[in-house]
């Protein structure tokens, strides 16, 4: 069971107080009507499923009920960072590492 630091409450709580909402940083298109069906479908349905670093949206549903972002390693379950909505992650996949893994 994960131990999650809520950036709003300022302390660690058990995973069961939280609810994962899925991939973070999925912005709603500003002009949905201008989207093609394909673009809308991308926004709606297509999500990453990486092995390794993943940026996720969580909510402290049984606590302060605030949403926040988490960078988590899907393989090791390490939580690299939590950060508030509107902020950007500091722990990101290094492009070099990716190309190295592919070669």
């Amino acid at each position: 069971m994960l131990h999650i630091y809520c950036p709003h409450c300022g302390e660690y709580r058990d995973e069961e107080e939280f609810h994962s909402v899925g991939q973070a940083h999925i912005a709603r298109p500003l002009d949905p009507e201008a989207c093609s069906d394909e673009e809308w479908g991308e926004y709606l349905f297509f999500r990453k499923n990486p092995r390794g670093l993943h940026h996720e949206l969580w909510v402290h549903s049984a606590g302060c009920r605030k949403f926040f972002n988490m960078t988590r390693d899907t393989q090791t379950y390490e939580i690299k960072e939590v950060y508030k909505i509107g902020e950007q992650p500091t722990v990101v996949v290094q492009l070099q590492a990716v190309s190295g893994a592919q070669s």
Binding site: H19, R28, L57, F67, I85
Partner: peptide, 13 residues
């Protein structure tokens, strides 16, 4: 309730 909050907190703060 969570639906309203998520749109308010993440899309239209």
């Amino acid at each position: 309730y969570e639906w309203l909050e998520i749109y308010h907190q993440t899309e239209w703060p």
